[in-house]
Amino acid sequence: TEHYTFHTEEQAQRAAKKFKKQGLPVTIHEKNGKFTLQVN
């Protein structure tokens, strides 16, 4: 499991699309105004 932190939801969504294209499951969590992208 890898985690990436982004300052905006837009950045997180863009990164999520790249991972999803590779067939990886992705979840985004919002915490304290930051967005954490979790790749399993």
Rank of each mutant, 00 (worst) to 15 (best):
K31H: 13
T27D: 05
K17W: 07
Y4V: 05
Q22N: 07
H7I: 08
I28Q: 01
F35R: 03
Q22H: 10
K31Q: 11
G33M: 01
F35H: 04
Y4Q: 05
Q13M: 12
E9R: 14
A12G: 00
T36Q: 11
H3Y: 15
H29E: 12
A16T: 02
H7Y: 11
T36P: 02
T1G: 11
N32A: 05
K18D: 08
H7T: 11
N32F: 05
K21A: 14
H3Q: 11
K17V: 11
A15M: 10
Q22M: 15
L37Y: 02
I28M: 05
T5N: 06
L24N: 04
H7L: 13
V39K: 00
H3V: 12
T36H: 15
T27A: 07
K34N: 07
K18S: 07
Q38D: 08
A15F: 08
Q11D: 13
T27S: 10
V26Q: 00
F6I: 01
P25G: 13
Y4D: 04
I28A: 01
F35K: 02
K21G: 08
K17Y: 08
N32V: 00
E9F: 15
H29Q: 10
Q38I: 15
Q11V: 04
H29N: 08
N32K: 04
K34Y: 13
N40K: 09
F6L: 02
T5G: 05
Q11A: 13
V39P: 03
A16R: 03
N32W: 03
T1V: 12
A16F: 05
Q13K: 11
E2C: 15
N32T: 01
E9T: 05
E30Y: 13
K21H: 08
T1Y: 14
L37H: 02
G33T: 00
T36F: 14
E10K: 10
Q38W: 12
E30D: 05
Q22I: 11
K20R: 14
K20F: 09
G23L: 03
T1S: 10
E10W: 09
N40I: 14
I28Y: 02
Q13D: 04
G33W: 00
R14D: 09
N40H: 13
Q13N: 08
F6W: 03
T27K: 07
T5M: 08
G33E: 02
A15D: 01
T36C: 15
G33C: 06
E30M: 09
T5A: 07
K21R: 10
G23E: 02
F35E: 02
G33I: 00
P25A: 15
E2D: 11
E2Q: 13
K34F: 11
P25Y: 15
F35G: 02
H29R: 09
Q13T: 08
Q13I: 13
H29D: 06
K21Y: 06
E9Q: 11
A16G: 03
N40Y: 10
T1F: 13
N32C: 13
T1M: 11
A12D: 00
A15W: 08
G33Y: 01
H3S: 12
E10N: 06
K18V: 09
N32G: 07
N40P: 08
F19Q: 01
Q13H: 08
Y4S: 04
L37R: 01
F35P: 02
F6T: 01
K18G: 06
G33L: 01
T5E: 10
N32Y: 05
Q22L: 14
A12W: 01
G23M: 03
T5R: 05
L37D: 02
K31R: 10
V39R: 01
Q11S: 08
E2K: 13
H3A: 09
I28G: 00
F35M: 02
K18T: 06
E10L: 09
E10H: 07
T1L: 13
E30T: 06
F6V: 01
Q11I: 04
H29Y: 13
Q11P: 01
F35L: 03
R14M: 09
K34M: 12
A15V: 08
F19D: 01
K31W: 12
L37W: 02
F6C: 06
Y4N: 05
K21N: 11
Q22R: 12
G23V: 00
L24T: 06
G33P: 02
V39H: 03
G33R: 01
L24A: 04
F35V: 04
V26K: 00
G23F: 03
V39S: 03
K31I: 14
R14V: 08
T27Q: 09
E2R: 14
E30A: 08
G33S: 02
Q11M: 08
H7V: 09
K31D: 11
T27R: 07
T1I: 12
L37S: 02
T1P: 10
T5K: 05
K18F: 14
E9W: 15
H29M: 12
T36V: 15
K17S: 11
L37M: 06
P25R: 15
F19G: 01
E2S: 11
K18A: 09
T8K: 04
K17I: 12
Q38F: 13
E10G: 06
T8A: 03
K18R: 12
K18I: 11
K34Q: 11
F35D: 03
F19I: 06
A15K: 04
E2T: 12
F19V: 04
H29T: 14
Q11H: 06
K31E: 13
V26R: 00
V39T: 05
E30N: 09
E9P: 05
K34V: 12
K21L: 11
P25S: 15
E2P: 10
E9D: 05
Q11Y: 04
Q13S: 06
G23H: 04
R14H: 08
R14G: 04
I28K: 00
Q22E: 09
T1K: 10
K20S: 10
A16Y: 07
H3D: 08
T5V: 13
K17A: 14
F19M: 07
F6H: 02
P25Q: 15
H7S: 12
L37V: 14
Y4C: 14
H7G: 09
A12Q: 00
H7D: 15
K31F: 12
K34P: 00
F6D: 00
H29I: 15
F6Q: 01
K17N: 12
H7K: 09
H3T: 12
F19L: 10
N40D: 11
K18M: 12
I28P: 00
E2M: 13
E10P: 04
T8L: 04
E10V: 08
K31A: 11
E10Y: 07
T8Q: 04
Q22G: 05
F6N: 00
G33A: 01
L24D: 03
E9G: 04
T5I: 14
H7R: 08
Q13F: 07
V39M: 06
K20P: 02
T27W: 07
T36W: 14
K20D: 06
E10A: 11
N40W: 12
H29W: 11
V26L: 03
T8S: 09
T5S: 08
K21F: 07
L37P: 02
Q22V: 08
R14C: 07
T8R: 03
H3I: 14
Q38V: 15
G23S: 03
T5H: 14
T5Y: 12
A12R: 00
G33N: 04
Q11G: 08
V26P: 01
R14Y: 06
E10Q: 09
A12L: 03
A16L: 07
I28R: 00
K34E: 11
F6E: 00
L24F: 12
K18P: 04
A15R: 03
Q38M: 13
T36K: 05
P25M: 15
T27M: 07
E9H: 10
R14A: 13
T8H: 04
F6P: 00
R14P: 00
Q38N: 07
H3P: 07
A12E: 00
E9K: 14
F35N: 02
A15E: 06
K20G: 07
F6G: 01
Q11F: 04
K31L: 13
K17Q: 12
T27G: 03
A16W: 04
A15Q: 05
A12M: 04
T8N: 06
A16K: 03
A12S: 01
H29V: 14
Q13P: 00
H29K: 09
E2Y: 12
K17L: 11
A15P: 00
Q38T: 15
F6S: 01
E9N: 07
K17M: 10
G23R: 03
L24W: 09
T5D: 06
A12H: 00
K31G: 06
L24K: 06
V26W: 03
E30L: 07
H3F: 14
